[in-house]
Design a protein around this nucleic acid. Structure first.
Length: 804
RNA sequence: GCGGGUGUGGCGGAAUGGCAGACGCACAGGACUUAAAAUCCUGAGGAGGCAACUCCGUGUGGGUUCAAGUCCCACCACCCGCACCA
């Protein structure tokens, strides 16, 4: 008969809760601390889905194993509750975001508890709780006091009817709600100067054990490049700067391109003979987002600034100037030199506009339909041509010499540029932390004093985005009007709120000391837990959230409030769970699987085991309805094994090898986040036990402990029913003995000229000569007439004879 | 476009450069049963063959190597991110 998972799972969840089993102190004598962290969820109305269960139960397995290994484990949970989605739902349902969030958190928590996660609920936090965001605000003020927060003009999406829009709300240049055309406008916004930390954010990755692709993503997002800033004079007066990493191609310049926003255009408008055309192009550009502008297909568009010519400082040559929207004002100096022979985008642009090509690097790569780019010529000893005194030098020599010449002339200097930009920290939205600043005519921007924090988000009647582009808070005079904390004169509060990223940039610190009302967390608590040992989250957060959190921590480190340079030792990302049809689960496609239904049918343990087993943790995987069923079957086999149980405190001869290899495999697989093969190893062990139809106490206990991280309810139930000692919560993770993994004999494959000709069973302790002899003897007929010239032996696997 | 990934049976997936397809699903056969379900046991990449066995097989095309799913080069397809969704 099937085991009664409903009863068992409820029973143990109640016991864990009653015992406060997973509540943890910051210090536990004789135990090392281990911090297992999973990104806290956004409490959307959709509730928990199978993707959540996959990562939560996986990290729960890690936490449970660490506990059994004797660690003092912090495995906390909370909610990232501010943000646009709650606001939208609230608007739709005519409720307050506060209510929506409260309701969703309740559902979430209930669902999480049913998954049987070993969470310390006493440390639960929510970013929209004033006792939490008080400290988010306090930290913002520290950024301000250290000159890292300032108001600055930035680009926003603007809809004439709806005001400021998020990128997400713009579809093909139109507002997603009213379908009016949107434009890009500038607006003064709070900005955190993250670029000041760009170098360190890139360099300090060596201090972490992040997965390699995550480090690469971070480095590419930061996008550090070293190059030269070169000053170009304009024949008609004035000058501008460009940034290039390919100074070696400067003699190949045949035109220049400025960003349409470049200040020079306004300055020299009287000298531009086709100013009307230029203006039209600039207005067209304003309708495009930066993302659209950087697409290559649009890179050929541009308009010449007729009447102007730029002068190449290297050789005095005059070249035409264009504006093109593929040049972004936000990167470098908003202007580029164009070398069509050696850059594909310049090449296409030149072709479109009938411009000249000058090849300056010698090689075969330059052809009639593509440029000879640096990826093809760098590091290959290519030489310069058509470059005056530099012709004949290698690219690497020329880079240095040309830069030297221009620097001596006073028209160039070295510069490091970053793709990464400062963090725009303002939102003209209601549902976020109010930015705790006051503007005074006399004193300028003044932070709200500590004793007046938090600046509480007021309850309002209308919190929809405003049409004038200001935050809904600006319509509340009681909120806006205040006095200057500095001089006491009437002043106005900042009405922008913070982005959702704010609260999530330091929540892992708050978990260390969640109820502290004197500071965001005590240094003692932070030292006890940081850095986080293993941090899991979605792939979509491996660039931005991770950078923001690392930046935030580095700043706190610099002002003495974080004990670590890097907050996360390792970072991993789970693959998403797709619908059974291979596409993302969504309500409209009807392929959403509710974990509650699965648990109802096959049990939470089966669901957890299946989510661990269904595939490589890092890869996306298609949901399969039969999976949980098969895992329920597996758990039943483990349960039914009680009938085979015999006395015995040591592993039996028949099972010893299988037990030791399972311990080894499961232990290393959990450490290496390979849950699927850990489950597979357990299945193999269970199959072996069914072959002998006998299991003793020692063996059963080991099996249950290995399975416990994945299926905590059933294992604890069997353990307690069988009255195994000590109680499972006090048991220790089993150890394997390498010497028990050595088998007496092994079957190896025999190859002649790399083709398998047969197999032979050999003792494991014999010499290579003996292996050769045995292989030849057992497959004598295959060797007839063969002249063996070489033998390759791969221990316990293959012997390969090379014959002539 | 830029950046990060992925591609293996009917399906989910395994495989430190060393016997491809572990483990599981679905499938087939057997045991148990009046019968079915459940359970237990066995089989199975494809093609050919009564069989022993042979040939073909890890997105495509090349290459390195005694040996390639794995390393290198070129290509194709798909997924994720791209700064006001978080």
């Amino acid at each position: 008969m099937d085991y009664n998972f409903k009863e068992i799972e409820k029973k143990w969840q109640d016991i864990w809760e009653k015992e406060c089993r997973f509540e943890v102190k910051n210090h536990e004598p004789g135990k090392k601390n281990c911090y297992v962290l999973i990104e806290f969820p956004y409490p959307s109305g959709k509730g928990l889905h199978t993707g959540h269960v996959r990562s939560y139960s996986a990290l729960d397995a890690v936490a449970r194993k660490k506990r059994l290994e004797g660690y003092n484990v912090l495995f906390p949970m909370g909610c990232d509750s501010f943000g646009l989605e709650a606001e939208r739902t609230a608007i739709k349902e005519h409720k307050l975001p506060q209510e929506i969030v409260e309701r969703n958190i309740k559902v979430f928590k209930e669902q999480l508890k049913k998954v049987g996660l070993s969470i310390d609920w006493s440390r639960e936090i929510s970013t929209c709780d004033p006792s939490y965001y008080k400290w988010t605000q306090w930290q913002f003020i520290q950024f301000f006091k250290h000159g890292l927060a300032e108001k600055k003009e930035t680009l926003i999406n603007w809809c004439p009817n709806c005001g400021v829009l998020a990128n997400e709300e713009v579809e093909d240049g139109k507002c997603c709600q009213c379908h009016a055309e949107t434009v890009q406008k500038t607006k003064a916004q709070w900005v955190l100067k993250m670029t000041k930390y760009a170098d360190r954010l890139a360099d300090d990755l060596v201090l972490t054990d992040y997965m390699e692709h995550i480090k690469t993503s971070q480095i590419n997002w930061i996008g550090r490049s070293q190059g030269e800033v070169v000053k170009f004079k304009i024949r008609e007066g004035g000058e501008f700067e460009i940034f290039t990493t390919c100074i070696e191609t400067i003699y190949g310049i045949t035109f220049m391109v400025l960003a349409p926003e470049h200040e020079l255009i306004e300055k020299l408008k009287d000298k531009i003979t086709n100013y009307d055309e230029v203006l039209r192009y600039i207005n067209e550009t304003k309708k495009k987002s930066e993302f659209e502008r950087s697409e290559l297909s649009k890179g050929k568009e541009g308009v010449q600034l007729k009447g102007l010519m730029a002068i190449n400082p290297a050789n005095g040559k005059e070249v035409p100037i264009f504006i093109g929207d593929f040049v972004l004002a936000s990167y470098g100096s908003g202007a580029v030199m164009a070398v069509p022979s050696h850059d594909q985008r310049d090449y296409d642009f030149a072709k479109e506009h009938g411009l000249e090509y000058i090849q300056v690097i010698d090689g075969e790569g330059c052809s009639s339909d593509c440029a000879y780019e640096k990826t093809s010529y760098l590091g290959k000893g290519a030489k310069l041509i058509n470059s005056q005194e530099f012709s004949g030098l290698t690219v690497e020599e020329a880079k240095v010499k040309i830069a030297e010449k221009l620097e001596k002339m006073g028209v160039a200097h070295k510069q490091t540029n970053f793709k990464m930009r400062d963090w725009v920290f303002s939102r003209q939205r209601y549902w976020g932390e109010p930015i705790p600043m006051v503007y005074c005519e006399t004193c300028g921007w003044v932070p709200v004093p500590d004793d007046q924090l938090p600046v509480v988000l007021p309850n309002v009647e209308s919190y929809e985005p405003t049409k004038d582009g200001e935050s809904p808070l600006s319509a509340i005079p009681e909120f806006v009007n205040t006095t200057c904390p500095h001089c006491g004169k009437p002043a106005k509060r900042e009405t922008d709120t913070m982005p959702g990223w704010a609260g999530s940039s330091w929540y892992f610190m708050r978990y260390c000391d969640p109820r502290n009302d004197k500071e965001f967390a005590s240094q003692d608590a932070l030292k006890a837990w940081l850095p986080v040992d293993i941090y899991n989250g979605g792939n979509e957060h491996t660039t931005r959230h991770l950078l923001y959190a690392r930046f935030w921590n580095k700043f706190l480190y610099d002002i003495g409030l974080s004990p670590v340079l890097e907050p996360f030792k390792t970072r991993i990302s789970q693959g998403i769970v797709l619908g059974s049809n291979g596409v993302k689960m969504s309500k409209s496609l009807g392929n959403v699987v509710d974990p509650r239904e699965v648990a109802e049918q096959y049990g939470t343990d089966a669901l957890r085991v299946w989510e661990a087993f269904m595939g490589d943790y890092f890869q996306s995987v298609n949901w399969n309805d039969d999976g949980a069923k098969s895992c329920n079957k597996f758990l039943n086999r483990v349960y039914d094994m009680q009938e085979f149980l015999v006395e015995g405190e040591e592993y039996s001869k028949e099972l010893s090898y299988h037990i030791h290899s399972a311990i080894k495999k499961v232990t290393s697989d959990i450490d290496n986040v390979k849950f699927n093969t850990a489950i597979s190893a357990l299945m193999i062990l269970v199959n072996e036990i069914y072959k002998v139809k006998r299991i003793n106490k020692a063996e059963y206990k080991t099996l249950l402990l290995l399975l416990n991280p994945f299926a905590p309810h059933i294992t604890e139930e069997i353990w307690s029913v069988q009255k195994f000692e000590p109680a499972l919560k006090n048991a220790t993770w089993p150890k394997y003995d390498e010497s028990k993994l050595v088998q007496d004999s092994v079957e190896i494959a025999v190859q002649i000229n790399s083709k398998i000709v047969g197999r032979v069973v050999i003792p494991t302790n014999i010499s290579n000569e003996e292996i050769e002899k045995l292989a030849k003897e057992s497959l004598r007929e295959k060797f007839e007439g063969k002249n063996i010239v070489k033998t390759i032996i791969i221990p316990n696997r293959i012997i390969n004879f090379i014959a002539k």
